[in-house]
Design a protein around this nucleic acid. Structure first.
Lengths: 200, 200
DNA sequence: CGCACTCATGGCACCAAGTGTCAATCTGGT
DNA sequence: ACCAGATTGACACTTGGTGCCATGAGTGCG
């Protein structure tokens, strides 16, 4: 039986994280050099010094190498949303929760921009990204539903879903515009403008 | 040189359409019977009496068999949008344009529902569907931009993009709710409620 | 009619993303 | 030091998708 079910992640899990991060670094370098589609999983495995099979054990899909962190980012947004005051209206709470992301602070701005450009320029990635946003929806809807005062989880009550989905859509539009501007424009301003256009 | 560049589609093109439709019928039957992922392109080809290679010439991807018609549907929506009075505000024009779709009248309601259920229950299809909606965006944005009075096609002007994207998002939310309700709920009501929640 | 030209077809090989399986090999914890 | 369970690599396999080429069937034209 596991003695430390909770608490420190255990050594095995920790080494796994390290190895995964290392592989991710290698892969991202290749992606940015040769492009996403032009880089095969085999090349990544060779470069990282592991077998193709093991690579697939660290990243279930090629897209996950780029977008894997979005899962935990989604959880972070959810936590941030749930930490907002209970009376705060949906849009403000969502804006604040999303703001907690800003940009991935682990990377340099140029790298973030390069990644974004790859993301919006590669169909398969673009699509995988949209799917991740769909997952975010699931995470955020319950809290918004609560804020709307809907006790029943009535599936026909599309309000919370629509609000969350459109918020994420606005975010996506803003990030795309930011990417196209070469990172010059202010992301928050772009987002606010998008939301204003929708709600005005 | 082609004598009939414009005008009647030509015999070859016509037979192609017919064959394509026939293949589509066969494939949809298999999809609905055994599920999308559980049906291989080879099975479809065999059932349709053509080679796998030819099947790929009729449908570039497996998803296109289900979603191929969405391309022309998008064009129809764009045309409907451009046919709306010039002064009509964006949301109303979009609602009217989308309404022109209603539901694919070529199929029985049960079939439409079954397709929708498959669509929302199969990740790869769901994602491909989102990509098609992305294409729709591109088609609809220019007109909305015009309605907003933005002469410059400034990429940093996210307003039109945001409005179109959120409209389609609301549509998607509504259709999903409609699907989950087993087709009982009224789609237009669901859509209006979603939009009201967002813009309220 | 017969010639040439185009296009659809099918067969084949091939690529790349995943997946199942299994044996060998760590290795963390007692 | 030992052992159960996890990690790994190797191999085979499935499936979607593409390139290539020979063959044949329809089409247009003289």
């Amino acid at each position: 039986m596991n003695i430390r079910d909770e608490g420190s992640p255990g050594l095995r899990e920790r080494t796994r994280r390290v190895v995964q991060a290392e592989i991710g670094e290698v892969a991202m370098r290749l992606f940015l050099e040769r492009g996403f589609d032009a880089t095969t999983m085999e090349q990544i495995a060779n470069e990282a010094g592991i077998s193709r099979r093991s690579l697939f054990r660290y990243f279930g899909t090629k897209e996950d190498i780029v977008l894997g962190n979005l899962v935990e980012a989604g959880l972070a947004v959810r936590d941030a949303l749930e930490a907002r005051p209970e009376g705060e209206p949906p849009w403000e709470a969502l804006r604040a929760a999303i703001e907690s992301l800003a940009l991935d602070p682990g990377y340099s701005p140029e790298r973030n921009l390069a990644i974004s450009k790859m993301l919006y320029g590669t169909p398969s990635l673009r699509v995988a990204h949209l799917e991740k946003q769909l997952r975010w929806q699931e995470l955020l809807v319950p809290n918004i539903q609560m804020r709307l005062g809907a006790e029943t989880d009535d599936a026909s009550d599309t309000r919370a879903r629509a609000i969350v989905a459109c918020t994420l859509t606005c975010l996506d539009v803003a990030v795309e515009a930011w990417t196209l501007s070469g990172g010059e424009e202010d992301l928050e301003r772009l987002y606010d403008r998008a939301v204003a256009a929708v709600r005005g």
